[in-house]
Simulated assay, not measured.
Amino acid sequence: MTDGSARVDAYIAAQADFARPILSHFRALVHAAQPDAVEAIKWSFPHFVYRGKNLASMAAFKGHASIGFWYSEDETAARTEQGGMGHLGKITSLTDLPADDALRAMLARAAAMIDAGAKPQWMERRQPREALPVPSTLTDAIAASPSAATVWAAFPPGKIRDYAEWIGEAKTNATRDRRIAQAVEWIAQGKGRNWKYEKR
């Protein structure tokens, strides 16, 4: 067993009851379909690496799991309709997964793209997103912290958008205020909203 496999074992074991069968099933299917794939934890969740390239990934969250393919010719309707990270939308049980044959075909296409030297499709599709309005409550709080204001002024648009989305999605004033306080603290330290998952 590799260190990566041991870490994936630990990751799966730590997830909720609904998620473990989903992750275990996809993991077994990847290894049956692509025996050369090795396991690694990247950005805090499991990845399957083929010939040095990220083939697929899986992750579990509080109420759903997700599966993504770094090399894919299209994105399924499930993601569009349900949202969520990955290509298959929010997966809450094994019945939400496509048939095994369909998953094997996705893995085969991804491996073939890697073999052909293709770039990950998400890199080719990605377009700059429109700027989001930053809530005035956030800008006021940042302005009150000189260290946060200095970092904020140098942040790239993506990091600003991440914070604007996070604050804007708050359902209550209490949640918004809690997030703003946390945001100012992280920004003052030079951290983006998703700093825990950024490659170090």
Rank of each mutant, 00 (worst) to 15 (best):
14 A>I: 08
38 V>I: 13
3 D>I: 00
123 M>P: 07
64 H>F: 05
146 P>A: 02
62 K>S: 15
55 L>R: 05
22 I>T: 05
4 G>L: 03
142 I>N: 08
43 W>V: 04
200 R>I: 10
108 A>G: 00
6 A>C: 10
30 V>M: 05
184 V>T: 05
132 L>N: 02
173 N>P: 09
169 E>A: 12
83 G>D: 04
86 G>S: 01
91 I>P: 12
163 Y>W: 14
169 E>F: 12
79 R>K: 14
88 L>K: 09
182 Q>P: 12
152 W>D: 03
116 A>Q: 03
26 F>W: 11
16 A>T: 11
168 G>M: 02
162 D>A: 10
113 M>S: 15
186 W>V: 06
158 G>Q: 14
67 I>T: 05
37 A>W: 01
35 P>I: 02
39 E>P: 06
46 P>R: 01
41 I>N: 01
148 A>G: 11
64 H>M: 03
115 D>L: 11
147 S>H: 14
19 A>K: 02
154 A>R: 11
154 A>D: 13
46 P>I: 00
32 A>Q: 08
98 P>E: 09
161 R>P: 03
27 R>G: 08
141 A>M: 01
80 T>K: 15
171 K>G: 08
50 Y>H: 04
100 D>I: 03
12 I>C: 10
18 F>P: 00
78 A>P: 12
86 G>Y: 15
82 Q>F: 09
114 I>V: 11
44 S>E: 15
17 D>P: 02
180 I>D: 02
108 A>Y: 13
8 V>L: 08
149 A>N: 10
